[in-house]
Amino acid sequence: MVPLEDGVEDVIGKAARGLGLADEPLARAAGVSLEEVRRVKRGELDERLIRRLASVLHLRGDALVALGKGDYRPRDPGPIPGFLAFHTAWSGMTVNAYLVWDLRTREAAAFDTGGDCDEMLGAIRDRGLQLRAIFLTHTHGDHIAALDRLKGETGARAYVGDQEPLPGAEPFAAGAEFSIGSLPIRTLLTNGHSPGGITYLVSGGPRLLAIVGDSLFAGSMGGGNVSYADALRNNREKVLALPADTVICPGHGPLTSVAEEREHNPFFTS
């Protein structure tokens, strides 16, 4: 079972950094001691403290406490025909990549590469697929580590949002549309974690898929490394505005859904 990417301490840390609140001003605003803030950031479960910090950080206290208690785990969507997730190691963490294909034509697309592409290449061979395209959600190293090899062994073309140009990948403007076999692929700009992060919406199969990279995680989100405000806005207005049963395929952690994150994500529930 793929673990959640973030715990309470990660969510609090990301929100505090996004709002520009160091530990001392955060403690003052929450009416708690500096040591209490640091205890929570070390992963200590204290419901009272978590709720005090959540109120200052504009996080949903109930969802944050549930995350800390281990009460939140997104429902497994189960097998999805024409879809596989891959979880590979990269610098002490696990990163996700995805393979989607047309069940009739066997044409396929990869979304990111993960730390290596051994499993993905094996799946392509075993299923008799033709990899036509490699779509990159963003250009952080853990998501593109195997790009050269995947291109070289399959002959697939790579594509990336034009706000994050990358040698060997063809740039496109957000809003561009692609297709793999009979499967339409729409693109949304979901920047904030990175300058030009892209979410890919794959329709035409059994479930609508939103392949979001590090824009959103089950119970959390990617840090707003470039713009915390943009990261929040894009997730709220674009990803979480999708139909409730949309499967969210994040760059780290387990699969989730729009319904799950509307209800349980501390950054967005209301």
Rank of each mutant, 00 (worst) to 15 (best):
I211W: 04
H58D: 15
D71E: 15
A15L: 04
Q130I: 14
D116P: 00
V37I: 15
M221A: 13
L147H: 05
D214G: 00
T154G: 10
P206W: 06
K151S: 08
I185V: 15
L45H: 14
F178L: 11
A176E: 09
D214H: 11
L240D: 00
T105Q: 01
P77G: 12
A30D: 05
A231G: 02
R51E: 13
G181E: 01
T139W: 02
S182Y: 00
S203I: 03
P195S: 11
P195M: 06
L59C: 10
C249E: 03
H58I: 05
L67Q: 05
T269H: 07
E263A: 15
T88Y: 07
C117M: 02
L103E: 14
P195L: 12
G82E: 03
E35G: 11
L147I: 08
E5Q: 14
G222Q: 06
E164D: 05
G13K: 13
L49S: 10
N96P: 06
L64N: 10
P167L: 15
N191T: 04
A218F: 06
M120P: 01
G192C: 04
L34H: 09
I180M: 13
V212P: 00
A241G: 02
P171M: 12
D245R: 13
L136T: 04
C249K: 05
N191P: 00
L255H: 05
A229S: 11
L26Y: 09
L34P: 00
G223R: 14
E35Y: 03
T187C: 12
R149N: 00
F268V: 09
P25C: 13
G114A: 08
G175L: 13
I185H: 09
G253I: 07
Y98N: 09
R17M: 05
L99E: 06
D116M: 02
V160S: 07
G92Q: 08
S179M: 12
R28Q: 14
F86A: 11
G13R: 15
L4F: 06
R149A: 04
L129S: 06
R51G: 02
M221P: 01
L147E: 06
A146K: 04
I50G: 08
P167E: 15
A133P: 00
W90P: 00
L216T: 10
P266F: 02
D6S: 14
P165K: 11
R149K: 07
A123S: 10
D118I: 10
V239K: 03
D126T: 11
D23R: 11
P243C: 08
R125C: 01
S270W: 07
A156E: 06
V2L: 09
P3V: 05
D142S: 15
A27K: 09
N265V: 12
G18I: 13
L209F: 03
A97I: 02
A176K: 11
A259E: 15
R38L: 14
T256K: 06
D10E: 13
F111T: 06
L84E: 14
Q130W: 09
N265L: 12
P25F: 12
R106Y: 04
D162G: 03
D6P: 00
A158E: 03
G152Q: 09
P25D: 08
